[in-house]
């Protein structure tokens, strides 16, 4: 677990075989953890490279641990065509929006920097994304899709919901994780059940780490 978390040592997966997880949850999460082996099906070729670069900007991940395969998680969702039950009328359907959006990002990048989005450095990528977020771009590759809307209604919700549905993300933010049949008993401030993560207060990192290793 990396240094940018207050919950070092905590791994929600350690609880997999405790009463906090039931059979159906284990099956669901096991399946999610196979995403690392997923081969792109919808965002393929150039789009795949753009998507991966985009993911590193939206959710930068620490280098000292295996990364959550965010691009793969999104591509799996696109392959299954799992929508949200509503769509802003100005946006095309899920897959099409992503196809156009990734393509347009690359086009914007080539237009402005002469290189594909994946070949930009971090700063340039982030810069470009800020322009997209604020609707300050107009490459014909957007094909009428409002860039800002794509960013706020597709990029952010889709990527953030995929990342924070991953157990590694739960460990990072100190979320208790799955909780059935065992829920919680200690409900008031600053109390944790023994199966919840310990937050490291300044100066107590080592103790918190030790206790987190024991959380079950």
């Amino acid at each position: 677990m990396s240094a940018d978390t207050r919950y070092r040592g905590y791994d929600v997966l350690d609880k997999r075989d405790t009463p906090s997880w039931d059979a159906v949850t284990r099956a669901v999460i096991d399946e999610r953890l196979t995403a690392a082996d997923h081969l792109p099906q919808v965002a393929t070729g150039a789009a795949w490279r753009v998507l991966r670069a985009l993911c590193t900007c939206i959710v930068p991940q620490p280098a000292d641990r295996p990364a959550v395969p965010l691009a793969a998680l999104l591509d799996r969702r696109l392959a299954a065509n799992r929508g949200d039950g509503f769509r802003d009328a100005r946006l095309p359907p899920l897959r099409e929006a992503w196809r156009i959006g990734l393509d347009a990002l690359d086009a914007e990048s080539r237009h402005g920097h002469g290189r594909g989005f994946a070949d930009l450095d971090d700063e340039a990528r982030i810069d470009l994304l800020h322009r997209v977020q604020h609707g300050a771009c107009a490459d014909p590759a957007w094909r009428g899709m409002p860039p800002a809307l794509f960013f706020s209604h597709r990029v952010l919700p889709d990527l953030l919901s995929a990342y924070y549905a991953h157990p590694q993300a739960w460990s990072e933010i100190g979320f208790g994780g799955p909780a059935n049949p065992r829920g919680y008993v200690r409900m008031v401030a600053n109390r944790r059940d023994p199966w919840e993560p310990v937050e490291a207060r300044p100066g107590e990192e080592a103790r918190a780490y030790r206790e987190n290793r024991r959380v079950r």
């Binding site: 799992r82 949200d84 799955p178």
Partner: peptide, 17 residues
């Protein structure tokens, strides 16, 4: 399941504009 993403199976996710 104890899982936000999986439980989307309960929602009305057919398209609406």
């Amino acid at each position: 399941a104890s899982d936000e993403e999986h439980q989307a199976k309960l929602y009305w996710t057919d398209d609406r504009l």
